[in-house]
Computed example of a mutant assay.
Amino acid sequence: MPNDGLIQFRSENLDAIQTQTTGQQERYIGIWDNVRAQLLGLIEAGQVDRQVGGVLEERDQIFRREATGFDDSVIAQNTAVRNVQNIGIEGGAAMVRAARGGA
């Protein structure tokens, strides 16, 4: 973006993407853990049939497996974003060197 005749590569927005996706991971795991704990509490208190516990355990395994897949995708996305940042920074530095007459 032009600024006083300069072109700048600003990576703050890319940093925000990485932070947001990591925050989403923490939130959805926290929500699931809270719901699971509440259901387990109801089972222990005898307010919900114990068979629900077996279903809950099965669902928890599915959730953990799918969450791991999502986590892997987030890690890959964050790696790609970091690569874009590095390319931008390296490209900018190369342009500065070229403009100064360096190699």
Rank of each mutant, 00 (worst) to 15 (best):
residue 74 V to K: 01
residue 40 L to F: 12
residue 13 N to Y: 05
residue 28 Y to L: 09
residue 99 A to M: 13
residue 85 Q to F: 02
residue 56 L to N: 02
residue 98 A to S: 11
residue 98 A to F: 10
residue 22 T to K: 05
residue 76 A to L: 05
residue 102 G to V: 09
residue 45 A to W: 06
residue 39 L to T: 10
residue 77 Q to H: 12
residue 42 L to H: 12
residue 5 G to A: 01
residue 40 L to Y: 12
residue 83 N to V: 09
residue 5 G to R: 04
residue 63 F to C: 04
residue 54 G to A: 00
residue 76 A to R: 09
residue 23 G to M: 09
residue 88 G to L: 03
residue 43 I to G: 00
residue 32 W to Y: 08
residue 93 A to H: 14
residue 96 V to R: 04
residue 103 A to S: 13
residue 86 N to A: 07
residue 89 I to Q: 12
residue 51 Q to E: 15
residue 10 R to D: 07
residue 44 E to I: 11
residue 94 A to P: 04
residue 91 G to F: 01
residue 24 Q to W: 15
residue 101 G to P: 06
residue 15 D to V: 03
residue 56 L to K: 12
residue 89 I to N: 12
residue 61 Q to S: 07
residue 87 I to S: 07
residue 78 N to F: 02
residue 51 Q to M: 06
residue 48 V to K: 01
residue 31 I to N: 04
residue 33 D to K: 10
residue 58 E to L: 12
residue 38 Q to S: 06
residue 83 N to Y: 06
residue 61 Q to V: 05
residue 65 R to M: 04
residue 85 Q to H: 04
residue 14 L to E: 00
residue 1 M to K: 05
residue 10 R to W: 03
residue 28 Y to Q: 10
residue 19 T to E: 03
residue 102 G to Q: 11
residue 38 Q to Y: 14
residue 60 D to Y: 05
residue 88 G to T: 00
residue 51 Q to L: 13
residue 24 Q to R: 10
residue 54 G to P: 04
residue 35 V to G: 15
residue 96 V to N: 07
residue 33 D to P: 05
residue 22 T to H: 07
residue 85 Q to L: 00
residue 43 I to H: 11
residue 15 D to C: 01
residue 11 S to N: 06
residue 52 V to N: 11
